[in-house]
Simulated assay, not measured.
Amino acid sequence: MRAIPLYLAVGVALLSPLPAAAQSSASAKAGSDSTATASAVDPRAVAALEKMGTYLRTLKQFSVHGDSTFDLVVDNGQKLQFPGTIDYRVRAPNALAIDLKTDRKDRQLFYDGKQLTVYGAKTGYYATIDAPPTTRELLAIIEDDYGIELPLVDLFLWGTDKASTSALTWATFVGPARINGTATDHYAFRQEGVDWQVWIEQGSKPLPRRMVITTTDEPSQPQYTSTLTWNTNATFKDSNFTFAPPKDAKRIQLVKVALVDETGQEGTP
């Protein structure tokens, strides 16, 4: 099965070298393409995205609950849709706890600025590794080194240099909308391989209230959607970010992706 990535990847286009004879015509085409792209990107939509990112980076402690659905595509091309929930507890700059529940998985993640623990409640397995001292550094290695994709990871990337808007090829304001009674503005964006939409709360707290992500480089175009409920006044204890193994829990090794590729053995709870 192929699953839609549960995050937005802000990519960088890499251009291969061109023969000298083709450079002038290619340059002219590139200029035309960049002009067309610029005209398709509404600066007001980009400004709203940047305002949201700036506000998110001011939040030092918060919780957010997501009611989500995601598509899996089976080998014959049929899409299957699964509901799930995601709960984040966050204390900047170095504490994070996640509860992810779907029909297929029940996972928890704990990070206290020193260690990262991943626990599979259905299997009873858990793995603990030493971790870098900040959440931002953790996010930089967790997928590349261990193949762990965190849903809604863009909540931590917007408003940083990891979320450049230069990859956007289309951006527009769709219109006002209400999400669970909250007044929002609906925006739509496009970049290579993904279309995505975000509903941003109106007023002084521009929080993302709903997201829809469509993978466009898959023929079936699977989607991930999540409606978000925020508590920006949440408070936590240190114990909220540390893992206490249940009596029958079994510890295993969290294996790096490179080692899995070499041995064929997995080590994720």
Rank of each mutant, 00 (worst) to 15 (best):
P208Y: 12
R44N: 10
L139S: 01
T134Q: 11
I148G: 04
D217N: 15
L259R: 09
E192D: 15
T227W: 01
V10T: 13
N180S: 14
A163V: 06
Q191H: 15
E192W: 09
P176R: 07
D112C: 02
D145C: 02
L109A: 05
Q108C: 04
L56T: 04
A167F: 13
A13W: 07
M211H: 06
Q221I: 04
S39V: 09
S16V: 10
F62T: 03
L155W: 07
R91L: 07
A188H: 14
V64N: 02
G175V: 00
G84R: 01
L59S: 05
T85A: 11
L207I: 05
Q115R: 12
A140E: 11
T165G: 08
Y88T: 06
T227E: 07
V118W: 08
Q81S: 15
Y126H: 06
E143C: 06
A47P: 08
N76R: 09
L96R: 00
Y187Q: 04
T169F: 01
Q223E: 14
D238R: 07
I252W: 02
E218W: 14
D75K: 13
Y126N: 00
G31E: 12
A45H: 01
E143R: 15
A30G: 04
T165Q: 04
Y55Q: 09
Q108L: 06
K162E: 14
P93L: 07
L157C: 02
R104T: 07
Q81V: 15
V41H: 00
K122M: 09
Y224K: 11
A21W: 06
K105E: 15
L6M: 11
Y111F: 14
E149I: 12
V41K: 05
Y224N: 06
T215F: 10
W199H: 10
P222Q: 06
E262Q: 15
D42G: 12
T232Q: 05
I4W: 00
A92D: 11
T184V: 12
